[in-house]
Nucleic acid binder design. Structure first.
Length: 404
DNA sequence: ACTCCACAGGAATAACCGGGCG
DNA sequence: CGCCCGGTTATTCCTGTGGAGT
């Protein structure tokens, strides 16, 4: 970076000059004043919840749609509107929100709900103090709802996460929740599930499906031109006027539209591009900044996911890298020898193949099944990331030192 | 048409891990 | 502390399979 640029950076920082007017606007947690292009969805969510206006229990609701289509935003916003409506003040509705992916386990989810219920509630002893089985936590929840005659809306974000791991009948909290209403009178619960995965219903217990999706709303992806408009409206608030070039906006929308209409990705991209531009002392955000931002985000993502891998998945990625494009058997051999030099106990081949397909699912490596006739049927794997990037990501892992 | 390789990947089960208790 | 629970990882055992070679 040339010296004058550095000086400029300092000057700008001192004088508080910045490309950004309000950075927060581009944070994914930010709720815009006006939600664009989701009128239909908002209307339908509102309609589904309308029984609340009559003080009755609304149907359970399932909101589908890919990431960045505004599901969470619309649901939360609609609930807030209902809750804050002056005429409904006397009809207290409890809204409990949790994200299944963040809570990561079923009991974590329930405990989170429990805490939210306990909050502002007088009966302290019924609070989250239970570290007991899922069933008993759940029973406590139901007890409180019944006793206090609560009208509770459970919002479960990324609900598809709950279906991934297998459950027995009494640990499947969706099963429990969907049939709990017989036990909550005069209170009630209804569930709003939010899912990114469109076919997640198929993995669900059929008894749960019918009651969980009494109402269903699909969120369509945004079109490229809608994303452009959304970006423009955020830019107006977030950036100093006229700083973001038209071409940059277009590229952001195009990239986000390529996968599916993911508004969040577009906004993230814009923010990173803005930071990049600011850092290099440019006074506009250009197409080039967006392109670099896209590359940077992609690389960061790979690096962090490589870094956070457990030891044996790392060794296996190295094994795949070393024996690029070969069969499971050979990869396993390489893996075993790597383990030996590192003095780590090697895992079974069964486990290794399982890890390989996990790595494949996270797109760090790719594999395809091939049949070699008399030489059997196997899978060939190769890495999707250049070797030096992998090495770079692993280089400060002490356990891996001896195998570079 | 039949065989048989080199695995894929399902099912059951064991071993281990960590938070929240008493 | 030791224990229970629910999860998560690994192991063990297994059945299934596309196609080159015969």
């Amino acid at each position: 970076m040339p010296k004058d640029k550095i000086d400029k950076l300092l000057d700008d920082a001192i004088e508080g000059r910045s490309l950004f007017k309000n950075r927060e606007i581009l944070q994914s947690s930010h709720t815009p004043n006006e939600i664009l292009y989701r009128d239909d969805e908002q209307k339908r969510v509102m309609q589904a919840l309308l029984p609340l206006a009559k003080r009755a229990r609304p149907s359970n609701l399932l909101a589908y749609g890919k990431t960045g289509t505004g599901k969470t935003l619309v649901v939360r916003d609609t609930l807030k509107k209902i809750q804050e409506h002056p005429k409904l003040r006397t009809f207290p509705i409890r809204i409990l929100y949790a994200n299944a992916k963040e809570e990561s386990t079923a009991s974590g989810l329930l405990i989170s709900f429990g805490r939210q219920l306990g909050f502002g509630l007088e009966l302290e002893e019924v609070l989250p103090s239970t570290g007991l089985s899922i069933g008993s936590i759940f029973n406590k929840l139901i007890d409180v709802i019944k006793k206090e005659s609560l009208k509770a809306i459970f919002v479960i974000d990324e609900i598809d996460d709950l279906v991934k791991t297998k459950h027995t009948q009494d640990t499947d909290i969706l099963y429990l929740m969907t049939r709990a209403n017989t036990r909550t009178n005069p209170g009630f619960i209804s569930i709003i599930g939010i899912s990114n995965v469109l076919d997640f219903k198929e993995k669900l217990d059929p008894r749960v499906v019918s009651s969980l999706s009494e109402e269903e709303i699909v969120f369509r992806p945004y079109t490229v031109s809608q994303i452009q408009k959304i970006l423009s409206s955020r830019i107006k608030e977030a950036f100093v006027d006229g700083i973001v070039e038209e071409a940059a906006i277009n590229l952001c929308s195009a990239i986000a539209g390529q996968e599916h209409g993911d508004a969040r990705r577009a906004i993230d991209l814009l923010r990173v591009a803005g930071e990049l531009a600011e850092r290099e002392g440019s006074n506009t955000v250009t197409e080039e900044h967006v392109r670099n931002a896209s590359i940077k985000m992609e690389e960061d993502k790979d690096a962090t996911s490589l870094n956070s891998l457990p030891l044996h998945q790392k060794i296996l990625t190295l094994a795949v890298m070393r024996s690029n494009g070969t069969t499971t058997g050979e990869i396993y051999l390489v893996y075993k020898s790597l383990c030996k030099t590192i003095r780590q106990k090697e895992l079974t081949q069964r486990r290794a193949t399982q890890i390989l397909s996990e790595l494949e699912e996270s797109t760090l490596i790719t594999g395809k099944i091939i049949s070699q006739g008399i030489h059997g049927r196997t899978k060939k794997y190769s890495t999707t990331i250049p070797p030096e990037k992998i090495k770079k990501a692993f280089k400060d892992d002490l356990a891996l030192q001896d195998i570079l």
